[in-house]
């Protein structure tokens, strides 16, 4: 129930090939996150799976049945949109009931499912309000409620939290994760947000210009990025990618070291430089360091109590075994 396979799927808008031939399998019950820079085709891919866009070639299989030519309604998938896409002239109750009404469910069944969804999502008090009278977070919950009651074989989310403020986002993130734990239904989730991707995903798909750069669990991607792009994309703050002489010492074109994998040492150290900016977050401090022999500023993470300031001299040393090496093609050297 809910295994989705894409086989050589291509999508063109006119002349422009937005998705070049792409293969991907999403296992049943998996929480898959699509990440990638803006315009890389995440939404398009999701809409292809949903059936809101037609594939130019290739095929899509859902639960073992060919779904390439099925209309969206027949695919058994539910989608939560970034704009929530609630029906503004219907009450929350009617919004949630709409897919069931379209499916011709009995009145009692509808009531029962609405009640269950409303309880699960804390919407019971708002059932008779219109979407316009709800806050962003509540609207998002209604949209999720409308998706749940259909009991779909998979949920599709397109940046569902991007319209919410930071605090609410954390809350909703937990709620969606919890929902996934409870329902064990396949979920595909598109996001820009590093933290959402790392914390929620069973599997992350990193896309660039419609290509899959790497697929894997969050930690796999963090520990073993397959190429420079993934290395730079996963992790926050970004991995430091250093070309030139320091990389040549490791027989590589680029070396990558994450900010959290640097130690500050009294003297010596592999790199020496001057602090340009220090960002104190309380728990951590990020130093942007102008290192001799390295063009771009190097970011390092240190404890919250380290008190270096602009212009201070600093010696840093990468931790053993935490240096990622990349060759001239940008691929990881094992």
């Amino acid at each position: 129930m809910g295994r989705i396979t894409l086989n050589k799927v291509v999508k063109r808008f006119g002349e422009v090939e937005v998705i070049p031939p792409l293969d991907l399998t999403i296992e049943d019950g998996e929480f898959t996150v699509f990440v990638g820079p803006s315009g890389c085709g995440k939404s398009t891919l999701l809409r292809l799976i949903a059936g809101l866009e037609d594939v130019s070639s290739g095929d899509i299989t859902i639960d073992g049945t060919p779904a390439t030519d099925l209309p969206p309604a027949k695919r058994g998938l539910a989608m939560v949109f970034q704009s929530y896409a609630l029906y503004p002239h219907m009450s929350v109750r009617k919004n949630i009931a709409f897919p069931m009404k379209m499916a011709g469910l009995s009145q009692e069944e509808q009531e029962a499912r609405i009640k269950k969804a409303a309880d699960a999502l804390n919407l019971t008090d708002y059932l008779d309000r219109r979407p316009g009278q709800l806050s962003g977070g509540q609207r998002q919950r209604v949209a999720i409620g409308r998706a749940i009651v259909r009991e779909p074989s998979a949920f599709l989310f397109d940046e569902p939290l991007s319209n919410l403020d930071a605090a609410l986002r954390v809350g909703m993130r937990l709620e969606i994760s919890e929902l996934h734990e409870r329902l064990k239904t396949t979920m595909i989730y598109v996001t820009h947000d590093q933290v959402e991707a790392m914390t929620m995903a069973d599997k992350i798909v990193v896309l660039r210009a419609g290509h899959i750069e790497q697929v894997g669990s969050p930690l796999e991607l963090y520990r073993n990025p397959r190429n420079l792009f993934v290395a730079g994309f996963i992790g926050s703050p970004k991995m430091n990618l250093i070309p030139g002489a320091p990389a040549a010492k490791h027989d590589a074109t680029h070396i990558g070291i994450r900010p959290e994998h640097f130690r500050i040492v009294e003297s010596g150290g592999t790199f020496t430089g001057k602090v340009i900016v220090s960002e104190h977050l309380g728990s951590d401090t990020f130093f942007h360091v102008d290192v001799e022999g390295v063009e771009e500023a190097v970011t390092i993470r240190a404890g919250g109590e380290v008190g270096l300031r602009h212009g201070d001299k600093i010696h840093i040393e990468p931790e053993e075994g935490q240096i990622h090496r990349f060759d001239a093609q940008g691929l990881r050297i094992a």
């Binding site: 059936g51 809101l52 309604a73 704009s83 896409a85 609630l86």
Partner: peptide, 15 residues
Amino acid sequence: LDSEQLEAAEMDGAP
């Protein structure tokens, strides 16, 4: 009219 609303309705199975 927000086209996402129509798409949502389409996904919800409305002909």
